[in-house]
Write a protein that binds this DNA or RNA. Structure first.
Lengths: 154, 154
DNA sequence: TATATTTGCATCGTGCACGATATAATTGTT
DNA sequence: AACAATTATATCGTGCACGATGCAAATATA
């Protein structure tokens, strides 16, 4: 492909990823706003539902987010009475995050959401096998790219 | 799949899209910061390089962004002397955006960037055919999802 | 031709993202 | 033990995203 052609929006590979990411966040909105959650806040809950009490660092590793994003986000969630922040006794630097009853209780309400969303993304044109292939490629890219962005300093 | 299982991060389909989107924006950074550009600013340039003078509305349609995002972004780009804003004579509501010489000249520098980035995303594990399949699925989703988010009010 | 509706853009407020920097606790080294 | 390096978190500044709202120009309707 000529360079000229590559600069056209329709031939870009990153633009559709960027757009779909935003559009999916929007698609999540009607489901999440019933609970007063944003999508990143929902992601934090996913981690805590799956792994229980975790440090900010551990949450960040799983979501590929740094503390400069997570710290304020988690403080907002604390204000919403979804979780509690406690300094670790073993290591006074760590802040351990634990769900409140309210945070735990949202799990039941959130459970059917991914299924509903996936369903809305499936059609005659896009079948489940396509989605699995897509996820496969993306997961491989995450492995490559997250490696790279960590080692920026080396 | 049980609902319990679906709530695990590793089984989510939207999370990898969200993560890869952010990681790719980061991957673009070293290439774009030479020109002092952010990724969304680069997208605006792509539109203007391809289509020439355009209204904010037209740019928004192509990038799937509204004016509340584009207006400030384009004003920043005007300050950087990349483009000029002019009210349309035919329709005083429209603001027409036209590239300056500087904005035009960046095209040559930006031309090889998508190729380089794509290359860094290809490996033994992820081949070009996988990327084409991925883009195909994403483009179909954009068609579905952008339709939906427009018709929210109906 | 008045008036209602729509359209294009801008502004405001809130919440991410993220680079840069700061700080205190911990660990490593001499 | 004293000091250097690392680690975990927090804060700051900037730039998106986006819902809500406002406003003026254009268009549609009565």
């Amino acid at each position: 492909m000529k360079e000229e052609e590559q600069l056209k929006l329709g031939n870009q590979i990153c633009f559709p990823i960027y757009s779909v990411s935003r559009l999916i966040t929007k698609a999540y909105k009607p489901y999440l706003e019933k609970m007063g959650l944003t999508y990143p806040q929902y992601l934090v809950l996913l981690v805590l539902w799956e792994h229980g009490k975790s440090s900010i660092n551990q949450i960040g590793e799983r979501l590929l987010l740094n503390t400069n994003t997570l710290s304020p986000l988690i403080k907002r969630m604390e204000k919403m009475d979804l979780l509690e922040r406690k300094r670790s006794v073993q290591d006074e630097r760590s802040v351990l995050i634990e769900l409140t009853k309210k945070g735990l209780s949202y799990k039941a309400e959130a459970a059917p959401v991914p299924q509903k969303l996936l369903k809305s993304l499936l059609s005659e044109e896009v079948e489940l096998t396509d989605v699995m292939l897509l996820k496969d490629t993306l997961d491989k890219w995450i492995a490559i790219l997250s490696e790279k962005s960590e080692n920026r300093s080396e």
